[in-house]
Simulated assay, not measured.
Amino acid sequence: METRRRSVVKAVVWNAMGLAVMTLVGLIATGSAAVGGALALINTAIGLTLYVIYERVWAGISWGRNG
């Protein structure tokens, strides 16, 4: 089983990459770094929260694990 710390670190790293991509997409879509960055931050905050919950739920499910 994964520790909570590992789940959180994985989520933070994944969302940092997503933040960079979404900032670029937001900038391209809106033409504004401020609006693009704000959209990216909101998306990242929501995504990080949901990802941590998702990982913790799956950490408690034994289906598909060897051993």
Rank of each mutant, 00 (worst) to 15 (best):
G60Y: 06
T3F: 05
A16S: 15
T44R: 03
G47K: 00
N15F: 04
I53S: 01
K10Y: 14
T44E: 06
G37W: 08
A16K: 02
G37V: 10
L48C: 04
A29G: 07
G64Q: 03
V35Q: 07
Y54T: 05
G37C: 09
M1N: 09
L19M: 14
V52L: 02
R65S: 11
W63V: 12
T3W: 01
A59F: 05
M17H: 04
G26P: 03
G18V: 05
I28R: 03
A59E: 10
I42V: 14
G36W: 08
L19C: 08
A16G: 10
G18P: 02
N15E: 10
I46E: 08
A11Y: 06
I53A: 10
A33G: 07
A11S: 15
I46D: 02
N15T: 10
L39F: 13
I53V: 15
G47A: 15
R5L: 14
A16V: 12
R56Q: 13
A29K: 05
R5M: 10
V25R: 03
T23V: 13
G36T: 06
V8N: 04
A38L: 15
I61W: 10
G64S: 09
R4T: 14
G36N: 07
A45C: 09
S7Q: 12
S7T: 12
N43R: 01
R5I: 13
E55N: 09
R5Y: 09
L50H: 11
T23Y: 10
M22Y: 05
R4K: 11
G47N: 13
R5D: 03
S62I: 01
L27V: 05
G37R: 12
A38P: 00
R56P: 00
I42P: 00
S7N: 15
I61H: 09
I28V: 15
K10G: 11
T3A: 07
I53T: 03
G64P: 03
A33P: 05
G31H: 08
Y54C: 01
R6K: 15
M1K: 09
V21P: 00
G18K: 02
V52T: 04
I53Q: 11
A40V: 06
G67Y: 08
Y54H: 12
A20Y: 01
A29W: 06
A38M: 13
S32M: 05
G36L: 05
G67C: 04
L39C: 11
I53C: 01
A59V: 08
V35I: 14
G26D: 08
G37M: 02
V21W: 06
G47H: 06
T30S: 11
G31D: 02
G18F: 08
M22W: 11
A33Y: 10
L41W: 11
E2N: 09
G31F: 07
N15C: 14
G64M: 04
T44N: 07
A45I: 11
G31V: 08
L48F: 15
L50W: 12
E2K: 15
L19R: 03
T23F: 12
T49A: 15
T49S: 13
I46K: 00
A59G: 08
A16C: 05
S7M: 15
G31S: 06
Y51F: 12
L48P: 01
L39I: 13
V12A: 15
T3M: 03
W63D: 12
R4F: 14
S62Q: 08
G37P: 03
G37I: 11
N43T: 10
V8Q: 07
T44P: 02
A34L: 14
G36Y: 06
A33V: 15
L50Y: 09
R56S: 09
A16R: 02
L24W: 12
